[in-house]
């Protein structure tokens, strides 16, 4: 229970990360760099400082507190020590990523037990990529299981098979991302090829009975029927796949990227119409799969 992990958010009242009302624990650090990532603060596996310009009152407390002079721009670069966030009275500067013990995570998750029990909900471990902190994840899953909580794992699948399978044994539900079937495209948009992901998915479906596939739908990347038909064919061949969610791209991530001080991304796909989404859902319906847009 003393193992520590790096968490960037614990979001209660999550209604789209598995059944019922859930608490989603977001792990910080991810092996992929998806161009459309809506949680850019989840990517780097160390704490970072965010600055929300709208909340800043320009009081200068952060500048005074900064031990390296990084904020004034006249010292060594920011080491994300957190002094500025501590000094900031408004919360405009905040630390993203805090070390938590397993006991702390479980304690936090337990707070909404009454709502899980009323809704058949539970806890979802998401990220970032939870499998990137395997020992901590396994300890969290195990501890939640012992407390009788329904556990879900939300993963991109880009991890060693043995790590994925041991986590799966402690998870009641796996939310598995399938982004693009073409590996070259996958690598271009996420920074990694998808062969290992696909192998993991097949291996997982042999040992785990309860998988939901989650497909971020991004214009210009995977919004073509051929891609969706390929995913549908794969999913139809895996009896463990209970549901497919098509998740339309949204732009909230770019807001947070700005708060992290990253330059505005050139990647700006247009929004997809309801008709397009319905068309993309069609191959799944034809394959007899339960498909849902959003969620």
């Amino acid at each position: 229970m003393n193992a520590r992990g790096l968490i960037f958010d614990v979001q209660r009242f999550s209604v789209h990360d598995g059944p019922g009302l859930r608490t989603t624990v977001f792990f910080k650090g991810c092996p992929l760099r998806c161009a459309w990532c809506h949680n850019p603060e989840s990517q780097v596996a160390t704490p970072e400082v965010m600055w929300s310009e709208g909340r800043c009152i320009r009081c200068g407390a952060c500048r005074e507190a900064c031990p390296t002079g990084a904020i004034a721009g006249e010292g060594i670069p920011c080491a994300a020590c957190g002094s500025c966030a501590e000094a900031c009275p408004t919360g405009a500067r905040e630390m993203v990523g805090r070390e938590m013990t397993v006991a702390e995570v479980v304690g936090e998750v337990q707070r909404d037990r009454v709502f899980y029990e009323e809704s058949r909900g539970g806890v979802t471990f998401s990220g970032g990529e939870p499998l990137a902190q395997p020992d901590f994840l396994l300890a969290c899953l195990d501890a939640c299981r012992r407390e009788g909580l329904h556990t879900a794992l939300d993963t991109c699948g880009y991890a060693p098979a043995e790590v994925l399978l041991s986590a799966a044994r402690l998870s009641d539900l796996i939310l598995f991302d399938v982004k693009v079937m073409d590996s070259a495209l996958h690598e271009r948009f996420t920074g990694g090829p998808n062969e290992m992901i696909m192998e993991n998915l097949r291996a997982l479906s042999e040992v785990h009975p309860n998988l939901w596939l989650r497909i971020p739908v991004v214009a210009g990347v995977n919004d073509d029927v051929a891609n969706m038909a390929a995913v549908a064919a794969l999913a139809a061949a895996l009896p463990a796949v209970r549901r497919v969610n098509l998740l339309p791209y949204h732009d909230l991530g770019s807001e947070k990227a700005l708060r992290l001080g990253r330059p505005r991304s050139a990647f700006a796909p247009h929004a997809l119409s309801g008709d397009t989404l319905a068309r993309l859902a069609d191959p799944f319906e034809r394959a007899g799969l339960a498909v849902q847009i959003g969620g």
């Binding site: 009242f13 709208g54 909340r55 949204h250 909230l252 700005l258 959003g294 969620g295």
Partner: peptide
């Protein structure tokens, strides 16, 4: 809440 993600309204950019 937008597309399954939630945030505090006041923390969003004017455009959002």
């Amino acid at each position: 809440r937008v597309a399954g993600y939630s945030d505090y309204f006041c923390d969003l950019s004017a455009a959002l």
